[in-house]
Protein backbone atom coordinates (compact mmCIF):
# COMPACT_ATOMS: atom_id res chain seq x y z
CA UNK A 1 0.00 0.00 0.00
CA UNK A 2 3.04 2.15 -0.17
CA UNK A 3 1.88 5.69 -0.36
CA UNK A 4 4.80 6.56 -2.59
CA UNK A 5 3.46 4.45 -5.40
CA UNK A 6 -0.21 5.10 -4.92
CA UNK A 7 -2.08 6.79 -7.70
CA UNK A 8 -1.94 10.27 -7.39
CA UNK A 9 -3.50 13.47 -8.16
CA UNK A 10 -4.76 12.69 -11.59
CA UNK A 11 -4.11 14.88 -14.51
CA UNK A 12 -6.16 17.94 -13.91
CA UNK A 13 -8.52 18.84 -16.70
CA UNK A 14 -7.57 22.45 -16.62
CA UNK A 15 -9.89 23.59 -19.32
CA UNK A 16 -12.77 21.65 -17.78
CA UNK A 17 -12.46 23.56 -14.58
CA UNK A 18 -13.35 26.78 -16.25
CA UNK A 19 -16.54 25.35 -17.72
CA UNK A 20 -19.85 25.72 -15.94
CA UNK A 21 -20.30 22.01 -15.49
CA UNK A 22 -17.87 20.74 -12.89
CA UNK A 23 -17.86 16.96 -13.21
CA UNK A 24 -15.91 16.39 -10.01
CA UNK A 25 -18.16 18.56 -7.87
CA UNK A 26 -21.20 16.94 -9.47
CA UNK A 27 -20.08 13.41 -8.56
CA UNK A 28 -19.48 14.35 -4.94
CA UNK A 29 -22.76 16.20 -4.61
CA UNK A 30 -24.51 13.21 -6.16
CA UNK A 31 -22.96 10.91 -3.57
CA UNK A 32 -24.23 13.19 -0.81
CA UNK A 33 -27.65 13.34 -2.44
CA UNK A 34 -27.85 9.54 -2.44
CA UNK A 35 -27.09 9.56 1.27
CA UNK A 36 -29.83 12.16 1.77
CA UNK A 37 -32.41 10.14 -0.16
CA UNK A 38 -31.41 6.90 1.55
CA UNK A 39 -33.12 7.98 4.77
CA UNK A 40 -36.54 7.70 3.14
CA UNK A 41 -36.14 4.07 2.13
CA UNK A 42 -34.05 2.54 4.92
CA UNK A 43 -35.41 0.50 7.79
CA UNK A 44 -35.03 1.94 11.30
CA UNK A 45 -32.03 -0.25 11.98
CA UNK A 46 -30.09 0.76 8.87
CA UNK A 47 -31.22 4.34 9.35
CA UNK A 48 -29.50 4.44 12.73
CA UNK A 49 -26.47 2.52 11.47
CA UNK A 50 -25.99 4.88 8.57
CA UNK A 51 -26.17 7.91 10.86
CA UNK A 52 -23.35 6.37 12.90
CA UNK A 53 -21.41 5.47 9.77
CA UNK A 54 -21.64 9.03 8.46
CA UNK A 55 -20.16 10.46 11.65
CA UNK A 56 -17.37 7.89 11.60
CA UNK A 57 -16.86 8.50 7.87
CA UNK A 58 -16.29 12.19 8.67
CA UNK A 59 -13.54 10.99 10.98
CA UNK A 60 -12.10 8.92 8.11
CA UNK A 61 -12.29 11.87 5.70
CA UNK A 62 -10.31 13.93 8.22
CA UNK A 63 -7.79 11.13 8.71
CA UNK A 64 -7.33 10.82 4.96
CA UNK A 65 -6.27 14.46 4.60
CA UNK A 66 -3.16 13.63 6.59
CA UNK A 67 -2.58 10.04 5.49
CA UNK A 68 -3.87 10.00 1.94
CA UNK A 69 -2.96 13.46 0.72
CA UNK A 70 0.02 14.46 2.83
CA UNK A 71 1.50 10.97 3.15
CA UNK A 72 1.77 11.00 6.93
CA UNK A 73 0.59 7.74 8.48
CA UNK A 74 -0.68 8.56 11.95
CA UNK A 75 -1.39 5.76 14.38
CA UNK A 76 -2.82 8.13 16.93
CA UNK A 77 -5.89 9.80 15.50
CA UNK A 78 -8.03 8.39 18.29
CA UNK A 79 -6.65 11.20 20.43
CA UNK A 80 -8.21 13.82 18.15
CA UNK A 81 -11.52 11.99 17.89
CA UNK A 82 -11.48 11.62 21.67
CA UNK A 83 -10.54 15.28 22.13
CA UNK A 84 -13.76 16.20 20.34
CA UNK A 85 -15.74 13.54 22.16
CA UNK A 86 -14.53 14.54 25.62
CA UNK A 87 -14.34 18.21 24.75
CA UNK A 88 -18.03 18.20 23.91
CA UNK A 89 -19.06 15.66 26.57
CA UNK A 90 -17.21 17.28 29.46
CA UNK A 91 -18.25 20.77 28.39
CA UNK A 92 -21.83 19.52 28.64
CA UNK A 93 -21.54 17.67 31.96
CA UNK A 94 -18.96 19.76 33.80
CA UNK A 95 -19.59 23.23 32.40
CA UNK A 96 -23.29 22.87 31.55
CA UNK A 97 -22.75 23.99 27.97
CA UNK A 98 -25.64 23.69 25.52
CA UNK A 99 -25.36 21.27 22.62
CA UNK A 100 -24.14 23.79 20.01
CA UNK A 101 -21.62 25.33 22.39
CA UNK A 102 -20.44 21.87 23.46
CA UNK A 103 -19.94 20.96 19.80
CA UNK A 104 -17.78 24.05 19.31
CA UNK A 105 -15.89 23.23 22.51
CA UNK A 106 -15.11 19.79 21.09
CA UNK A 107 -13.82 21.26 17.85
CA UNK A 108 -11.76 23.79 19.74
CA UNK A 109 -10.25 21.03 21.91
CA UNK A 110 -9.24 19.19 18.75
CA UNK A 111 -7.77 22.34 17.20
CA UNK A 112 -5.63 23.06 20.25
CA UNK A 113 -4.56 19.45 20.75
CA UNK A 114 -3.64 18.87 17.12
CA UNK A 115 -1.60 22.09 17.01
CA UNK A 116 0.36 21.19 20.13
CA UNK A 117 0.82 17.53 19.27
CA UNK A 118 1.64 18.42 15.66
CA UNK A 119 4.43 20.76 16.70
CA UNK A 120 6.07 17.88 18.57
CA UNK A 121 5.39 14.85 16.37
CA UNK A 122 6.29 16.61 13.11
CA UNK A 123 9.86 16.84 14.34
CA UNK A 124 9.97 13.17 13.40
CA UNK A 125 9.25 11.47 10.12
CA UNK A 126 8.64 8.06 8.64
CA UNK A 127 8.44 5.20 11.07
CA UNK A 128 9.18 7.35 14.13
CA UNK A 129 6.21 9.53 13.24
CA UNK A 130 3.90 6.52 13.32
CA UNK A 131 5.25 5.29 16.63
CA UNK A 132 5.24 8.68 18.28
CA UNK A 133 1.65 9.44 17.26
CA UNK A 134 0.70 6.06 18.66
CA UNK A 135 2.47 6.82 21.94
CA UNK A 136 0.75 10.16 22.33
CA UNK A 137 -2.63 8.63 21.63
CA UNK A 138 -1.89 6.02 24.26
CA UNK A 139 -0.95 8.75 26.73
CA UNK A 140 -4.28 10.39 25.89
CA UNK A 141 -6.14 7.13 26.48
CA UNK A 142 -4.35 6.62 29.81
CA UNK A 143 -5.25 10.17 30.82
CA UNK A 144 -8.90 9.50 30.11
CA UNK A 145 -8.58 6.62 32.60
CA UNK A 146 -6.43 8.57 35.05
CA UNK A 147 -8.95 11.39 35.33
CA UNK A 148 -11.73 8.90 35.94
CA UNK A 149 -13.34 11.29 38.39
CA UNK A 150 -14.56 13.33 35.41
CA UNK A 151 -14.47 10.84 32.57
CA UNK A 152 -15.65 7.73 34.44
CA UNK A 153 -12.94 5.86 32.55
CA UNK A 154 -13.82 2.73 30.62
CA UNK A 155 -17.39 2.81 31.81
CA UNK A 156 -17.93 6.26 30.32
CA UNK A 157 -20.89 8.52 30.85
CA UNK A 158 -24.20 9.16 29.17
CA UNK A 159 -25.43 12.60 28.13
CA UNK A 160 -28.95 13.27 29.35
CA UNK A 161 -31.47 16.05 29.74
CA UNK A 162 -31.20 19.48 28.16
CA UNK A 163 -28.09 18.56 26.20
CA UNK A 164 -30.27 16.34 24.02
CA UNK A 165 -31.80 19.44 22.45
CA UNK A 166 -29.66 21.64 20.25
CA UNK A 167 -30.50 25.33 19.81
CA UNK A 168 -29.23 27.05 16.73
CA UNK A 169 -30.37 30.26 15.05
CA UNK A 170 -33.49 30.30 17.20
CA UNK A 171 -34.47 26.79 16.13
CA UNK A 172 -34.56 23.73 18.36
CA UNK A 173 -33.42 20.29 17.25
CA UNK A 174 -34.37 17.19 19.19
CA UNK A 175 -31.20 15.09 19.14
CA UNK A 176 -33.10 11.98 20.27
CA UNK A 177 -35.07 11.99 17.02
CA UNK A 178 -33.55 9.57 14.47
CA UNK A 179 -34.38 11.89 11.57
CA UNK A 180 -32.68 14.86 13.16
CA UNK A 181 -29.65 12.75 14.03
CA UNK A 182 -29.42 11.37 10.51
CA UNK A 183 -29.54 14.77 8.88
CA UNK A 184 -27.09 16.36 11.29
CA UNK A 185 -24.69 13.49 10.64
CA UNK A 186 -25.18 13.99 6.91
CA UNK A 187 -24.62 17.73 7.23
CA UNK A 188 -21.37 17.10 9.09
CA UNK A 189 -20.21 14.63 6.47
CA UNK A 190 -21.18 17.00 3.66
CA UNK A 191 -19.16 19.82 5.20
CA UNK A 192 -16.16 17.51 5.70
CA UNK A 193 -16.34 16.18 2.13
CA UNK A 194 -16.66 19.65 0.61
CA UNK A 195 -13.84 21.04 2.76
CA UNK A 196 -11.64 18.10 1.78
CA UNK A 197 -12.54 18.47 -1.88
CA UNK A 198 -11.87 22.20 -1.88
CA UNK A 199 -8.60 21.67 -0.06
CA UNK A 200 -7.18 18.99 -2.31
CA UNK A 201 -8.11 20.90 -5.46
CA UNK A 202 -6.55 24.10 -4.17
CA UNK A 203 -2.92 25.19 -4.50
CA UNK A 204 -2.41 24.08 -0.89
CA UNK A 205 -3.70 20.61 -1.73
CA UNK A 206 -1.17 20.51 -4.54
CA UNK A 207 1.59 21.31 -2.05
CA UNK A 208 0.43 18.60 0.36
CA UNK A 209 0.45 16.04 -2.45
CA UNK A 210 3.89 17.25 -3.49
CA UNK A 211 5.11 16.68 0.06
CA UNK A 212 3.68 13.17 0.00
CA UNK A 213 5.37 12.45 -3.32
CA UNK A 214 8.80 13.94 -2.63
CA UNK A 215 9.30 16.13 0.40
CA UNK A 216 12.86 17.16 -0.45
CA UNK A 217 11.78 18.38 -3.88
CA UNK A 218 8.86 20.30 -2.41
CA UNK A 219 11.28 22.04 -0.07
CA UNK A 220 13.54 22.93 -3.00
CA UNK A 221 10.54 24.49 -4.71
CA UNK A 222 10.36 26.91 -1.84
CA UNK A 223 7.80 25.34 0.44
CA UNK A 224 8.14 25.26 4.19
CA UNK A 225 7.18 21.62 4.41
CA UNK A 226 7.00 21.64 8.20
CA UNK A 227 4.39 24.38 8.20
CA UNK A 228 2.38 22.73 5.46
CA UNK A 229 2.43 19.39 7.24
CA UNK A 230 1.38 21.10 10.45
CA UNK A 231 -1.48 22.72 8.58
CA UNK A 232 -2.59 19.34 7.21
CA UNK A 233 -2.33 17.75 10.64
CA UNK A 234 -4.37 20.50 12.27
CA UNK A 235 -7.09 20.36 9.61
CA UNK A 236 -7.13 16.58 9.86
CA UNK A 237 -7.15 16.59 13.66
CA UNK A 238 -9.84 19.25 13.85
CA UNK A 239 -12.15 17.39 11.46
CA UNK A 240 -11.57 14.23 13.50
CA UNK A 241 -12.48 16.16 16.63
CA UNK A 242 -15.62 17.52 14.98
CA UNK A 243 -16.62 13.93 14.24
CA UNK A 244 -15.90 12.97 17.85
CA UNK A 245 -17.92 15.88 19.22
CA UNK A 246 -20.82 15.03 16.93
CA UNK A 247 -20.63 11.40 18.00
CA UNK A 248 -20.86 12.35 21.67
CA UNK A 249 -23.77 14.71 21.17
CA UNK A 250 -25.77 12.60 18.71
CA UNK A 251 -25.37 9.23 20.38
CA UNK A 252 -25.15 10.58 23.93
CA UNK A 253 -22.30 8.41 25.10
CA UNK A 254 -18.70 9.29 25.97
CA UNK A 255 -16.24 6.55 26.95
CA UNK A 256 -12.53 5.77 26.99
CA UNK A 257 -12.94 3.08 24.30
CA UNK A 258 -13.03 5.85 21.72
CA UNK A 259 -9.59 7.00 22.85
CA UNK A 260 -8.10 3.51 22.67
CA UNK A 261 -5.67 2.37 20.03
CA UNK A 262 -8.45 0.61 18.18
CA UNK A 263 -9.96 3.95 17.18
CA UNK A 264 -6.62 4.97 15.72
CA UNK A 265 -6.45 1.82 13.61
CA UNK A 266 -10.04 1.90 12.35
CA UNK A 267 -9.80 5.11 10.29
CA UNK A 268 -6.62 3.74 8.74
CA UNK A 269 -8.49 0.57 7.80
CA UNK A 270 -11.50 2.47 6.42
CA UNK A 271 -9.29 4.70 4.30
CA UNK A 272 -7.23 1.78 3.01
CA UNK A 273 -10.34 -0.12 2.05
CA UNK A 274 -12.05 2.79 0.32
CA UNK A 275 -8.97 4.22 -1.35
CA UNK A 276 -5.99 6.16 0.00
CA UNK A 277 -5.95 9.74 -1.21
CA UNK A 278 -9.48 9.83 -2.59
CA UNK A 279 -12.28 12.03 -1.29
CA UNK A 280 -15.10 9.47 -1.44
CA UNK A 281 -12.97 6.43 -0.55
CA UNK A 282 -13.10 6.93 3.23
CA UNK A 283 -16.90 7.05 3.15
CA UNK A 284 -17.19 3.88 1.12
CA UNK A 285 -14.55 2.18 3.27
CA UNK A 286 -16.29 3.09 6.52
CA UNK A 287 -19.63 1.93 5.22
CA UNK A 288 -18.36 -1.43 3.96
CA UNK A 289 -16.19 -2.17 6.98
CA UNK A 290 -18.95 -1.23 9.41
CA UNK A 291 -21.36 -3.61 7.74
CA UNK A 292 -18.70 -6.31 7.38
CA UNK A 293 -18.07 -6.23 11.13
CA UNK A 294 -21.80 -6.00 11.75
CA UNK A 295 -22.54 -9.04 9.62
CA UNK A 296 -19.64 -11.13 10.90
CA UNK A 297 -20.63 -10.41 14.47
CA UNK A 298 -24.03 -11.95 13.79
CA UNK A 299 -22.34 -15.27 13.12
CA UNK A 300 -19.34 -15.07 15.37
CA UNK A 301 -17.88 -12.86 18.06
CA UNK A 302 -14.64 -12.87 16.11
CA UNK A 303 -14.94 -9.38 14.67
CA UNK A 304 -11.26 -8.67 15.35
CA UNK A 305 -10.46 -11.46 12.93
CA UNK A 306 -12.41 -9.62 10.23
CA UNK A 307 -10.44 -6.45 10.91
CA UNK A 308 -7.10 -8.25 10.96
CA UNK A 309 -7.72 -10.26 7.83
CA UNK A 310 -9.06 -7.19 6.02
CA UNK A 311 -5.91 -5.20 6.86
CA UNK A 312 -3.56 -7.90 5.63
CA UNK A 313 -5.62 -8.70 2.54
CA UNK A 314 -5.72 -5.01 1.58
CA UNK A 315 -1.99 -4.62 1.95
CA UNK A 316 -1.26 -7.81 0.03
CA UNK A 317 -3.79 -7.78 -2.76
CA UNK A 318 -5.60 -4.48 -2.95
CA UNK A 319 -3.25 -1.69 -1.92
CA UNK A 320 -5.11 1.08 -3.69
CA UNK A 321 -8.52 0.42 -2.23
CA UNK A 322 -11.81 0.58 -4.09
CA UNK A 323 -11.88 4.16 -5.35
CA UNK A 324 -8.13 4.14 -5.94
CA UNK A 325 -8.51 1.10 -8.19
CA UNK A 326 -11.41 2.67 -10.03
CA UNK A 327 -9.28 5.72 -10.62
CA UNK A 328 -6.51 3.58 -12.09
CA UNK A 329 -9.03 1.82 -14.28
CA UNK A 330 -10.04 4.97 -16.09
CA UNK A 331 -11.72 7.48 -13.79
CA UNK A 332 -8.53 9.49 -13.75
CA UNK A 333 -10.27 12.74 -12.98
CA UNK A 334 -11.46 11.64 -9.52
CA UNK A 335 -9.68 13.63 -6.83
Amino acid sequence: MSVDSSPIQPTKPVAGRRSLFDKVLFVHLAALAILFLAQFVLSDYHHLTLARVMVLASFAVGYNILFGYTGLLSLGHAMFFAAGLYGAGLAATQLSFGASEAFLAGIFAGLVLSTLIGMIVLRTSGVSFMIVTMMFAQAGYLMSLYFGEFTRGDEGFVLQGDIRTAHLFGLSFDLTSPDVRYNIALALLAVCVLVCLALVRSPIGRILIAIRENEERARMLGYDTYRNKLFALVVSGTISAAAGAAYALLFAYVGATFASIQYSILPLLWVLLGGVGTVLGPILGTLLMFYLVDITSEYTSAYMLAVGVALIALVLFFPKGIIGTLRDKGLKWLP
Binding site: V3, L73, M130, L268, M304, L305, V307, G308, L314, V315
Partner: peptide, 26 residues
Protein backbone atom coordinates in the same frame (compact mmCIF):
# COMPACT_ATOMS: atom_id res chain seq x y z
CA UNK B 1 2.97 -11.71 4.68
CA UNK B 2 6.05 -9.56 5.28
CA UNK B 3 8.21 -11.10 2.57
CA UNK B 4 5.43 -10.62 0.06
CA UNK B 5 5.14 -6.91 0.72
CA UNK B 6 8.92 -6.66 0.44
CA UNK B 7 9.25 -5.19 3.94
CA UNK B 8 7.88 -1.83 2.81
CA UNK B 9 7.94 0.10 6.11
CA UNK B 10 4.40 1.46 5.96
CA UNK B 11 2.78 -1.63 4.52
CA UNK B 12 4.55 -3.67 7.20
CA UNK B 13 3.07 -1.55 9.95
CA UNK B 14 -0.42 -2.02 8.56
CA UNK B 15 0.11 -5.75 8.01
CA UNK B 16 1.49 -6.31 11.50
CA UNK B 17 -1.48 -4.44 12.94
CA UNK B 18 -3.57 -6.99 11.05
CA UNK B 19 -1.52 -9.79 12.60
CA UNK B 20 -2.05 -8.21 16.00
CA UNK B 21 -5.81 -8.45 15.62
CA UNK B 22 -5.73 -11.98 14.25
CA UNK B 23 -3.46 -13.33 17.00
CA UNK B 24 -5.49 -11.56 19.65
CA UNK B 25 -8.73 -13.00 18.28
CA UNK B 26 -7.31 -16.52 18.09
Amino acid sequence: VLKRIDYNPEATIVATIGLLYIIQQL
